[in-house]
């Protein structure tokens, strides 16, 4: 047949698109479940927002505080999930060997998963926000929306790094891997101050919140939206998140490579066990 094709940037980009397209097909095929989960997320966000109404004092800012927490957590956990479960899922489907022996860079494969995760996370968040806005009068006057968006985008990078590290766990252990992923996610939820300031945490737990990128995302976005903090006041958050992202992505990739190599040696790159 024809001569071996030259691997080029175009091929890699095409493959990246292939992952995005494939995940889109899968989402479409499981649309019923998507709707159900989305419904649940919307309701969950609403119930949390109502807490802001019941506590004494002016409701508006408190509701917004909680809604930001719920939305951000929804977005970040979707990214973390989608990336970290990408391997576990293919193993369950039985396509893992097929995908891993494709003539593409692992970076392309993982990049495709991340691009889809971000697109999916943003779409979901917009839908949830739209419904929530219908229930509450959220005043965004004076909010620095571009600033909030910048914080969000930069923090996505850090979460992708975390997701990559978690993604390889199922390659090492079929059952323990996904278990560890859930523990990790729960921990981040606890320490990052999603619905409260981290100052309320017990003193021994508080130092850990410093390590979670979500802590800075939440603070930065809240400062931008609730206090209308200007770009120059957000620089601190942006820098911390960028540094975390720039550290976590290569670390995540390195951990993934090591895990993949180990799986190829131990024979774990297959459907069962």
């Amino acid at each position: 047949m024809d001569a071996p094709r030259r691997r080029s940037l175009r091929t890699e980009l095409g493959a990246l698109l292939g992952f995005v397209e494939r995940n889109f097909y899968l989402t479409r095929r499981y649309l019923g479940w998507e709707v159900v989960f989305l419904f649940y997320t919307v309701v969950n966000t609403l119930t949390i927002a109502f807490i802001g109404v019941t506590t004494p004092g002016e409701a508006g800012p408190k509701v917004l505080y909680l809604v930001i927490g719920a939305l951000l957590w929804g977005y970040l956990s979707v990214i973390f999930h989608d990336v970290s479960e990408s391997v576990a899922w293919e193993r369950w489907e039985g396509t893992i060997e097929y995908t891993f022996m494709a003539p593409i860079h692992r970076l392309t494969h993982l990049g495709g998963m991340c691009v889809y995760a971000i697109a999916y996370g943003i779409t979901r968040s917009i839908i949830v926000l739209t419904v929530v806005a219908f229930f509450f009068k959220l005043s965004l006057s004076g909010a620095n929306l571009p600033g909030a968006l910048a914080v969000l985008l930069v923090s996505s990078i850090a979460f992708i790094g975390l997701g990559l590290m978690a993604a390889v766990l199922p390659l090492l252990s079929t059952e323990r891997g996904p278990q560890a992923t859930h523990i990790m996610e729960g921990f981040i939820l606890l320490v990052s101050g999603v619905y409260y300031e981290v100052e309320v945490l017990p003193s021994w737990l508080r130092p850990i919140s410093v390590l979670s990128p979500a802590t800075y995302t939440l603070r930065g976005v809240r400062a931008a939206i609730l206090e209308g903090a200007a770009m120059r006041d957000l620089v601190g958050y942006l820098v911390i998140l960028a540094v975390m992202g720039l550290g976590l992505i290569p670390l995540g990739l390195a951990v993934f490579r090591m895990g993949e190599r180990h799986a190829m040696k131990a024979g774990k790159l297959k459907r069962h066990g």
Binding site: G14, A15, L17, Y25, L26, R29, E93, T99, A102
Partner: peptide
Amino acid sequence: AAFFKKLSALENLRYAARLYG
């Protein structure tokens, strides 16, 4: 057969085509 079982053969083949350039 290593396929995304909920997807059609065509969708699986499209994915494969993209992977192989």
